[in-house]
Amino acid sequence: MCCTTVNTVIMHISLNHHSGDPLYRQVVEAIRLRIAKGEIEAGEQLPSIRDLAAQLQINSRTVVKAYEELDRAGLVVMQQGRGVFVASNRAALPASERRKRLRELAVKLLVEATQVGSNLDEVIDIIHETAKELETKQ
């Protein structure tokens, strides 16, 4: 076994094969959520491509694609021959790109809110509440 004590995270991800969502995106979202919640910490090692593919019973190329996407987003670092680690200093996106992404999500959120008969105040309340929940978990 290896002498350095890097924790390899055991990843429980449930995939929905029938939703039409690409599997690699489902893997990306599941890992992003875990990092956001603080369930996986900076420096921790993610399962190897082979292990995660075996566990999820998916093509290893799907896992590669997911890890590459997370790498591009600056959330993980892929180190040749060593493995995939959660990034410690997450590269901040340029302000314009950051605002663009958040705006897209805001549109989705507000459309949903209108459809279920909610309003802006309630949405803002919920954002505050959720932020607190995430903080306490971290």
């Binding site: 075996a54 019973q57 998916i58 093509n59």
Partner: peptide
Amino acid sequence: LYGLLREQAN
């Protein structure tokens, strides 16, 4: 069966 097919593929 599908698990085995995937395992052999990977």
